[in-house]
């Protein structure tokens, strides 16, 4: 706010001096002028940057602190390889194998990707290669609006509309679907990450130079061949990055699975079963009774750390892919 007057206050005299004393003042006088506005803005911006870094570091410190308290009671190996998750039984009789929760997360995520990858890529390809400019200008923002729907709304939608529909349709075909099930949550989660996949893939495809497309056409390729054999491979690393980011969002997604996928840690590959994801477990535990200092309380942080590690690695991977796709041309 007050930086602007300062800048001009510092700037104006300098100009006047230059005009009045041109000739008398040495041309080589390149000495520093005081510019307080510059320094203020630098300080403000640096503070903003530092604050966000400190917050992140603080969160990680708390996460790791509580998690390491957990791992004093439960060996890391048992945590990562155990196939039973019964923390409510207490430290003595309960078991703390994270695999059922991981299984729940991966099952729902896999279903989500099965929905989001084909639909997202299809939408991206349509927008970048086929849609007329006007349609594209209209559709792309509306697709991104989908990313703004609160996930709790999507969760309720899954539970109240998709699940009954699945139970009706699959039930008629003789397939029993649990009231809470991975399928319904996965489908809706897939819809949730379509904008991420589509929008970023579309960016990657639009960034493919026109010259490459023209080369394709020039060799007698049809529009479809250009889209599939020229644009898609050229944009591949960007597309993969988009999928990985979508995957990261799916793994970290909480409300949809908490509402629609259930709270039963099981190892299963049947999407009609009830499962519990890592995130859903955290919600359940935070919402329930888990006094500070108990193993159950600490287990939240162990799982939080694992989630953090997974999404962190996915983001790193995505960034590497993005960088590669920038290098190509």
């Amino acid at each position: 706010m007050d930086t602007q007057p300062q800048t001009s206050a510092a700037g104006t005299p300098a100009v006047e001096v230059g005009a009045a004393e041109r000739g008398s003042r040495s041309r080589m006088d390149l000495g520093g002028r005081s510019r307080p506005g510059e320094r203020t803005i630098l300080a403000v911006l640096a503070l903003c940057g530092a604050l966000s870094i400190f917050t992140t570091v603080g969160i990680i410190v708390v996460l790791i602190g509580e998690a390491s308290a957990f791992f004093r009671h439960v060996p890391l190996r048992d945590f990562l390889t155990g196939t039973e998750w019964t923390p409510q039984a207490g430290l003595e009789r309960g078991s703390f194998g994270v695999l059922p929760l991981l299984n729940g997360t991966l099952l729902v995520t896999a279903i989500a990707l099965l929905v989001a990858v084909p639909l997202g890529l299809g939408a991206a390809m349509y927008l970048s290669e086929y849609a007329p400019e006007r349609v594209r200008k209209l559709l792309k923002p509306s697709l991104e609006v989908l990313a703004g729907v609160p996930t709790i709304v999507l969760g309720v939608f899954a539970l109240n509309i998709v699940t009954p529909a699945l139970r009706g349709v699959l039930g008629a075909a003789g397939i029993e679907v649990d009231f809470f099930n991975a399928l319904s949550a996965g489908l809706v989660m897939g819809v949730m990450i379509i904008p991420t996949v589509a929008s970023l893939s579309e960016d990657a495809m639009s960034a493919v130079p026109r010259g490459l497309r023209e080369s394709g056409y020039g060799l007698g390729a049809t529009k479809r061949q250009v889209a599939v054999r020229v644009v898609l491979p050229a944009a591949l690393s960007g597309v993969v990055a988009a999928i990985i980011l979508g995957l990261g969002r799916a793994i970290g997604e909480t409300m949809i699975v908490a509402v629609a996928a259930g709270n039963l840690p099981t190892i299963t590959f049947d999407p009609t079963n009830q499962v519990q994801t890592m995130t859903a477990y955290i919600v359940q535990t935070v919402g329930g009774e888990a006094p500070r200092g108990t193993v159950k309380y600490q287990s939240i942080f162990a799982i939080g750390s694992l989630l953090f590690a997974i999404t962190f690695l996915l983001n790193v991977a995505a960034q590497r892919f993005v960088r590669r796709f920038r290098e190509v041309y």
């Binding site: 130079p209 010259g211 490459l212 023209e214 080369s215 394709g216 020039g218 060799l219 020229v230 491979p233 050229a234 190509v328 041309y329």
Partner: peptide, 13 residues
């Protein structure tokens, strides 16, 4: 009728 462009633009293959 084939075409060669101003900028060499091989496919990234």
């Amino acid at each position: 009728v084939g075409m060669v462009f101003q900028k060499p633009n091989p496919f990234p293959k």
